[in-house]
Design a protein around this nucleic acid. Structure first.
Lengths: 212, 212
DNA sequence: GTGCGATGTATCGGTCCGATACATCGCGGC
DNA sequence: GCCGCGATGTATCGGACCGATACATCGCAC
């Protein structure tokens, strides 16, 4: 998961660890709190060892200035490699059941702009199915086993059920939108127009069609 | 977390691993999928080593019947000890910030019936604060940084924001209810109480001020 | 000039998950 | 009769990720 997120982010621009964490928190604010350094740095090292990313020498703005007077800074900027981009595409293509749990779904969804439509649909439908199952489970408990549980537990189930129903509806909308061929959902109010030219659009190109 | 959940469940009645997992899934269906055996069994061993739980010889219903004809079953039934109950009470009393993240909150909430009112309030308010912070973060992103993000990411944020607002409202209700001194939220239909005759009922000793 | 909060890299122990293995029980189909 | 098969049940292993902690530097206010 972390691997996927890092590769996705570094595709937008090179970054160092701290920045990576911040960007990720911003992008996933909804689903995840913030990744821990205790997993971030080891993962970076792993990715580097695998060749998906490389250290990009931190150019001090103008190389002429500040040559070595101050002790060399610790900041390490990472950059994705060609192999890394391939790897990312492969991870998207493979997107399977592990993509349907809360975290996995959130992370993949956050990179839908780099995901082809077929995969988007597959993920959305898989997620919906999973949530529907959870919903049925909750309905079961609330229906059949209600007497066995105390009032607080029941309240928890009710709240969970509500959240499930809501998410299913949300997913339905997204799926319908996706099928109708166009971008996400409705553009929001005010600030007319705009908001379409972010860097690097979903490359529908050679995103491989292999099966593992 | 798992430790807490297990001690809480075993207070309702002795159980073996499989049962424990099922009960837990039913009680937490809303927040957690289901705990993994890979953490359940090691934790059980840890709790046993610490003396919070013990193996209770699996009595075959009526000892007269089915004595030893069939090969001895592997089933291991666990039972909470007096020290375990103390430990559980202590864990509740200590309930701090780690209790405010999704999983921690869910698990603690599921055992609110065994939690004193002051602690319930503390947990609910801590959780509310945490969600409010998340909400503000999302509003920030949606407000200030909207242009930097693609439409899918924005949609994810919107959905997350909605969920936050909804949960805050839910928590407000629960808190108000809690302050007004009454049980959870709306009481559900008849069939009050029930399931009380197992060996170890919640000792009304020092905790508990509510009536279930 | 000194303290202090934000920035930044890094490690360690511990919790928990996912996959896997294996054994038994009850049941229906052939 | 006996055979497979899904539910029940215990167990382990490698790996992902977290939370706490330790440092070092930078910019700025006082």
């Amino acid at each position: 998961m972390l691997e996927f997120a890092i590769l996705g982010l570094l595709q937008e621009s090179p970054m160092h660890g701290y920045e990576l964490r911040k960007e990720l928190a911003a992008k996933l604010g909804a689903f995840r709190a913030a990744i821990s350094y205790g997993s971030l740095y080891p993962t970076l090292r792993r990715l580097q060892a695998a060749g998906w990313i490389t250290e990009a020498a931190e150019t001090p703005a103008t190389a002429e200035e500040v040559p070595a007077l101050t002790t060399r800074r610790g900041r390490v900027v990472y950059k994705i490699t060609a192999e890394g981009k391939e790897r990312f595409a492969q991870l998207i293509a493979q997107a399977g059941p592990e993509t349907y749990d809360d975290t996995g779904f959130g992370v993949h969804f956050a990179f839908f702009a780099r995901t082809d439509q077929a995969t988007r649909l597959r993920i959305l439908e898989g997620r919906r199915r999973k949530i529907e199952e959870r919903r049925e489970g909750l309905r079961d408990v609330l229906g059949r086993a209600a007497e066995r549980l105390d009032a607080y537990t029941l309240e928890l189930q009710r709240h969970g059920l509500d959240a499930c129903e809501r998410e299913v509806r949300w997913l339905e909308e997204l799926i319908a939108n996706e099928r109708s061929g166009r971008a996400p959902t409705v553009p929001q109010p005010g600030t007319a127009g705009g908001r379409r030219e972010d860097n690097s659009p979903p490359p529908p190109g050679e995103t491989r069609t292999e099966r593992p």
